[in-house]
Amino acid sequence: MTATDLLRPLLVVAVFAVVPWLGVSNATLNFLVYMLIVALAAQGWNILGGFGGQYSFGHAAFFGTGAYATAILQVQLGVNAWVGLVCGVAAGVAVGLFVGFLSFRSGLRGSYFALVTLAFAEVFRVVANAAGFTGGAAGLLIRLEPGVATLQFADRRITCMLVLGFVGLGLVISTWLTRSRFGAHLIAVRENEQAAEALGVDPMRVKLGAIALSAALTALAGCLYAQYFLFIDATIAYGPWISVEALLAPLVGGAGTVFGPLIGALALHGLGEATKGIAGSVPGIDLVVFGVVLILVIAFLPGGLMGGLARLAGRLRTIARGRRPAVEA
């Protein structure tokens, strides 16, 4: 990975970093923070699902572990929020390795891997809802106490910068995957596991590395979620909603691309906000429109938004060269 490789991620981060300081509304700021948290979880999914081809339906297991670990440490044990964050990520990685080890050892992939991750997340949800140290069904409430030490900022622009910093880190990691030996091995395993093995790649090690990295980013998103909203319960932390969010954004944005998860999260949540306005007095209509647009995007944009952008760029280049676009329609 060279300095020029980092140029594009930095540029994108810079664009996002400017927005909060342009005097945007609080609603926009809140939207940005939440969207970036989802994008971070989605970047995690993208490492395993996009680059590694292992579709997980259970990233909630990592997200929730991060969220619960950081919340429990702060609420029950009075640990500093930053330490909580680090421990949350570590706990997420541990869960990732556990789930990964069991499933990859059994050779699960495709739908089977998807279903087993889904089941693991559900087990976590049921247990977290019943156990005592998680606050049970009442959930956990982190004390509202703005300060650098508590990782809560009265000025939301700072929160936004913090989350954006982590998303930037996710972009750098993703970029590294496209440039490094490990990334090449991961993609080789995705394309053809047997062939990769024949070439001397250890698929188990590669996949475990990917799930650890993937779980780390998604757990980080969970920690930030807990620190921002200050309240979690089993359905929030381990519910299927975040598993879906985490996979939806990269798939819409472009799975296995560096910017796919971020673009996807921005597009999906932007669309969600945009359709809210049309609900009127009939609840549900906005989400119907959301679903329809989602299907249309998939139907007409193979490769997600990034794929669409790449084709658009290609077409513009051909036009710029004064030729007719090669393929019409």
């Binding site: 509304s25 609080n26 609603a27 809140n30 939207f31 939440y34 909203f229 309240f231 909603w241 906000e273």
Partner: peptide
């Protein structure tokens, strides 16, 4: 859902 609740409060404030 709790995130939407927070977001809607921001909108109402706006």
């Amino acid at each position: 859902n709790p995130e939407a609740a927070a977001q809607e409060v921001e909108r109402l404030q706006g």
